[in-house]
């Protein structure tokens, strides 16, 4: 692992405006993730872990603090700058897979390439990742023709196709049964071990969290150990 952290979060605060009420979702978060680390963030609903995921992934701006991702401060970035960052620096895996329902698995992966301005055909080197994920033979199928586990593996492939520095996974096994959960978590661990992929995984399941190198707990918008 590199000594220089790939993610450095200092005193991160995020306040949402809900109607006329301010909701303080993050209350001064400090976090550091090393390059090549598989970090699990665990916490109950409302602890702020999803908000942290969204801020670190550049999906929403922070209210204050510092969020350095690959030495670039997301807090100072404009919306278009954060959009550009999402193309190649981070890859998302969501609980509900979030595949485009009308496209095949291959096209779902190709869309990510297209958005990043890359040739939409999949690189031959990426075949290794597809083999690792076990979906090479399922690429011509549409999401509704795939099992939940397969859909999530396609989502992981899509998240990795542009070689992001960080893979952000938000409850990646939340919709899966135990067997498929173990497959997906093992794959994430494999990707981390074999490819050195930095992974930040959010979960409320301690067993899933245990697949990470390190587990960080969140409560009430703060890191709690």
């Amino acid at each position: 692992m590199s000594e220089r952290p790939i993610i450095q979060v200092k005193n991160l605060r995020k306040i949402y405006r809900v109607g006329k009420v301010d909701v303080e979702a993050l209350r001064g978060v400090d976090l550091s993730v090393a390059r090549g680390e598989f970090l699990s963030i665990i916490g109950p609903s409302g602890s702020g872990k999803s908000t942290l995921f969204h801020v670190v992934g550049g999906l929403t701006p922070a209210t204050s603090g510092t969020v350095l991702v690959e030495d670039r401060d997301l807090v100072k970035m404009s919306d278009p700058e954060r959009t550009r960052m999402r193309k190649t620096v981070v890859g998302f895996v969501f609980q509900k897979y979030n595949l485009l329902p009308t496209l095949t698995a291959a096209d779902n992966i190709a869309v990510a390439r297209d958005i990043a301005g890359q040739n939409s055909s999949i690189e031959p080197e990426f075949q290794k990742v597809l083999d690792l994920l076990g979906i090479a033979g399922r690429l011509k199928h549409k999401p509704f023709e795939l099992s939940g586990g397969e859909q999530q593996r396609v989502a992981i492939a899509r998240a990795l196709v542009n070689h992001p520095a960080i893979l952000l996974a938000d409850e990646p096994t939340g919709n899966l049964d135990t067997a498929n959960s173990e497959i997906v978590l093992s794959l994430l661990r494999d990707l981390n071990d074999r490819l050195g992929q930095t992974i930040l995984m959010i979960t409320h399941n301690p067993e899933a969290a245990a697949y990470g190198h390190r587990v960080v707990k969140m409560r009430d918008g703060r890191i709690d150990g």
């Binding site: 992934g57 959009t83 550009r84 999402r86 990510a112 958005i115």
Partner: peptide
Amino acid sequence: EIGILKSLGAS
């Protein structure tokens, strides 16, 4: 679907 595209970095 638009949200998915935007999460992937679609401008």
